[in-house]
Design a protein around this nucleic acid. Structure first.
Length: 579
RNA sequence: GCGCCUGUAGCUCAACCGGAUAGAGCAACGGCCUUCUAAGCCGUAGGUUACAGGUUCGAUUCCUGUCAGGCGCACCA
């Protein structure tokens, strides 16, 4: 419909251009919905843009443009308003066409092929597998999964990936923590559990499972165990413990390490699966080490002459590529930094042929963006193809009190707990109700309280009401509209036009939500569509005796239900037929 | 100190990558159920868009500065 008007406008402009009255057609020409209905269904600012170049008043130019518009069955009339806007008022037939389109396209209504041929990689969550996902990770999960759905609806080929940090020191700390709990369970822990290890209950469970698996076979490493509480520096204490375990357990250290990693990763997978968040691939950091990809990436940087050695460490000259300071790739102890494997990972993403790569990181990683981009450029890659979306933190509150979310202390609220408390639908919806760059205050008390008067129910209710109408019609023995042969031209009431107008916006919102990486646009749109429906429902009786009118109105309602279902599906929220 | 994000109604947030009179939800107040689900609808009230400049036909949006909040500035991940 918009394309139709746009075509007519372009035609008029081309005609004026051919006549020499305007120098060209502005590229920034807008054809948008005015905020107020009095300003028409569509409005263009083109005359305002041309005024300066032509040297005439905008309103005069607008007059010429309107005069040059071809006659049309869908444009009822035009109006020149304000400083020189051209307002278009459409015929009801244009809106009837939208309803027809929804019924034809069904679950594909709103979809487009804008992204056809583009392979896009989306990495999100990628939380360290050192514990269950907490509510902060939930935001990234909901956001990423929704964005993936929206991009797919726009025709992009999307590949979702979770980067598993299974190689770092944090994993060793987890292994050590599991071991201490393992000893504790056997009554063989000589002192109290240390502060800076992972202390959540899940560590006890992993230790218990390990014990079932290996019995007391690993207990021998307790001999010569360094006295952690006596050591003043906690980090050194942990590292000493890890070194001791690696040495005395030998091959069995791998068993210990895997016990934690496997169980937690399985838990994370289940959790996300239940949350309807799915990945094409879980990418192991360790695999980058094992295949030599990290060696290769670092070697490539060295070969390109962007590295130097200082005090035993290998540095990348990131400052040559606009970063604040140079970065260490390999420590003086010979171990690679996290940064080194991340360079390898990103180089590998590009090597796999994605046309565009989107990373979704927590906002606390923002300082990390310049150095990754610097490394990509140093490797001769186009850093423009890497887009980093920073998702601000979700700060947990219980009433007015901030809730600590230290994973080590085990005091956090897990994503699973949140889902069980407010439900998947509400959680998915709430998480994407704000832009990514907005801080999200997640008040647990409020989330619970809202579970009954939640905006998501408002939208679901609109959907369910339509199906309720169908059930009512069946009970009363009233016939339902068939797929075709419904005369929509009877729909002339302003609220019916307004409702169809709201429907027509869905395809546009799908485009801008993808373009701006903003799933919240879908959520806000759905609330407006639901509001338009509730208004209509309250003002107009749908199940009237006159069959043609009833069929036309039900067709409109079914179109609304279809659009709501399509929108909710993009956000991972169910569209129930009954509440 | 440097960098990134943010500042809009009492609260939580929108505002279509510069457009016309800045909009919703919640909270407050007043109405609507003998008829399709009141988990709903209708209405009232609420604003110097943090502040000061600048850019232009036009600024919540872009630029500069100030103030305030969050985050980051590791041979951690």
């Amino acid at each position: 419909m918009k394309a139709f008007v746009s075509q007519a406008l372009q035609g008029a402009l081309q005609q004026l251009h051919a006549q020499g009255s305007i120098p060209g057609i502005p590229a920034t020409l807008e054809l948008d919905r005015p905020k107020q209905v009095e300003h028409g269904h569509l409005a263009s600012n083109v005359a305002l843009l041309l005024a300066k170049a032509v040297g005439r008043k905008p309103r005069d130019i607008a007059n010429d443009i309107v005069a040059a518009l071809p006659a049309s069955e869908w444009i009822a009339r035009t109006e020149i308003a304000g400083p020189g806007f051209i307002n278009f008022f459409l015929q009801p037939a244009a809106f009837h066409a939208v309803i027809h389109r929804v019924r034809t396209e069904k679950e594909r209504f709103g979809a487009n092929r804008n992204g056809a041929g583009q392979r896009l990689q989306l990495e999100f969550v990628s939380a360290n597998p050192t514990g269950p996902l907490h509510v902060g990770h939930g935001r990234g999960a909901a956001y990423g999964a929704s964005l993936a759905n929206i991009l797919r609806f726009n025709g992009f080929d999307i590949f979702c990936e979770y980067y598993v940090n299974d190689a770092g020191r944090q994993m060793d700390i987890l292994a050590a923590s599991v071991y201490l709990r393992y000893l504790e369970a056997a009554g063989a822990l000589p002192w109290a559990f240390p502060e800076n290890s992972y202390r959540g209950d899940y560590v006890r469970e992993i230790a218990a499972h390990l014990r079932e698996q290996v019995g007391d076979r690993l207990q021998h490493a307790a001999a010569g165990l360094p006295n952690l509480p006596e050591m003043s520096d906690g980090d050194i204490a942990i590292d000493t413990l890890i070194a001791h375990l690696k040495q005395s357990l030998g091959e069995n250290y791998r068993t210990l390490h895997s016990a934690g990693l496997d169980e937690i990763l399985a838990d994370i997978r289940d959790d996300l699966e239940d949350f309807d968040v799915r990945y094409e691939r879980w990418y192991s950091e360790r695999s980058l080490m094992d295949t030599g990809a990290v060696d290769a990436a670092v070697a490539a940087l060295e070969k390109a002459g962007h590295c130097y050695t200082l005090e035993g460490a290998l540095w990348f000259r990131a400052t040559a590529f606009d970063d604040d300071k140079d970065r260490v790739l390999r420590r003086d102890n010979g171990a690679y930094t996290y940064f080194a494997s991340d360079v390898a990972y990103h180089a590998e993403k590009f090597a796999r042929g994605f046309t565009h790569v989107i990373d979704m990181w927590g906002a606390d990683h923002h300082g990390y963006v310049p150095r990754v981009k610097a490394a990509l450029r140093a490797l001769g890659l186009d850093d423009q193809q890497l887009e980093v979306v920073l998702v601000q933190f979700a700060i947990l509150y219980r009433g007015t009190e901030k809730v600590s979310m230290s994973t080590r202390a085990g005091e956090f609220v897990t994503l699973r707990e949140l889902r069980e408390e407010v439900g998947n639908d509400a959680a998915r919806f709430f998480y994407v109700l704000r832009r990514a760059d907005q801080h999200l205050d997640f008040d647990l008390e409020l989330a619970k309280k809202h579970s009954e008067e939640n905006p998501v129910f408002y939208i679901q209710y609109a959907h369910a009401r339509v199906y309720s109408l169908l059930r009512q019609a069946a009970e009363k023995g009233l016939s339902l509209p068939s797929a075709d042969g419904v005369d929509l031209t009877i729909l002339q009431e302003s609220r019916e036009i307004a409702l169809a107008d709201a429907l027509w916006r869905f395809p546009e919102v799908v485009v801008t939500a993808a373009r701006d990486r903003e799933p919240h646009q879908i959520a806000f749109y759905l609330r407006e569509l639901a509001a338009a429906f509730h208004t209509y429902y309250n003002s107009t009786r749908i199940l009237v005796e006159e069959t043609p009118l009833r069929h036309a109105r039900l067709t409109l309602c079914l179109a609304v239900a279809q659009a709501i279902a399509n929108g909710l599906r993009l956000l991972g929220v169910r569209a129930p037929e009954q509440m």
